[in-house]
Nucleic acid binder design. Sequence first.
DNA 1: GAGGCCATGTAATGAGTTACATGATTAT
DNA 2: ATAATCATGTAACTCATTACATGGCCTC
Lengths: 180, 180
Amino acid sequence: MYDDAMALRYALLGLLNDAPASGYELTQRFALGIDRYAWSAKHSQIYPELRKLEGEGLIEVVGEGARGKRSYGVTEAGRARLRDWLLSEPSAKGTRNEFVLRLFLMSALTNEEAVQLLTDLSKFAEAEQAELTAKVAELQARDDATLTAPVFAAQYGVHAYGAIREWANWVLTELAKKRD
Amino acid sequence: MYDDAMALRYALLGLLNDAPASGYELTQRFALGIDRYAWSAKHSQIYPELRKLEGEGLIEVVGEGARGKRSYGVTEAGRARLRDWLLSEPSAKGTRNEFVLRLFLMSALTNEEAVQLLTDLSKFAEAEQAELTAKVAELQARDDATLTAPVFAAQYGVHAYGAIREWANWVLTELAKKRD
DNA sequence: GAGGCCATGTAATGAGTTACATGATTAT
DNA sequence: ATAATCATGTAACTCATTACATGGCCTC
């Protein structure tokens, strides 16, 4: 069984599969957009996990650089483990999205406040969508393997913000109905 | 400043604002769909948090029932706190969504495997969308204040799954391009 | 009276964040 | 030289899950 909750290790294996990297570089790849839609991690969690993965033979040091830099690459065992996980059933664990939570709790606001919030939200989502669309085009133009996951993430964001806009508009019509 | 990471307390305040409830009932309201898109919590985390909120005067016992049941309602202080939080800037903390993470890491699969996974995914999202659409209609028909947040959650799910479908189809066309 | 659900709680463990800490290299 | 960034690490704390634990009420 895949113990789920081990998502961080698979995130690391997956990113290293795109291209070898150091803990520092991995931290940056998370910040390239993955942390917004899928998973986030700080260096303080990444470094120890890399050591663990190395100890289990799933990754290995493939190069050393200045300032004690250690670049890791996935081993065959690591790649096999990652593939197994990707092809296994997702664990359907509880999502955590504070942003969406706020939206669900809006009934605590007055009608005017809620309308204002949703209108702002819709505009915000539109702006984010435009920005991400540009980012996708830019990342794609670079044609770099390390950017595969970030491009997917950004494009997912484009659709996710579209969903938020549609949803916000739906709620606005619901609120209008109730006011009658 | 709102310490973010306190999302659970606001989830509880928000749910109690829809209608008073016991810890047990709150656990069930999370399971009604909020846990899938926004936030999840187990009873073992909910009960202590309710005690804390009570200690801070943000909620109060509004009724007792059989088997030691304690129903809580939000106090004025609690409602004020919740409103402040809802109207404050979201903390934009890292989202955690294992499902989406898997999608980002798909480059570790062969082209055939990826195509298969995305096709399955698209179908799955379609089925979920249909189910949730039905659920929204059913919940709305009940016209019950405690269902406000769950209805919003379900409708959000409808749009979120739509986004996943669109995204999956986009990735499929990208993969087709690369194969040429 | 047995089985299922209602109802609450605590302890142990694991995951994740914040803060603390250090030092090397590079660019200005 | 000095500031920014690269690069790694550990400790303390908080948040969250799993497992353990108990007992009442209701239906059959």
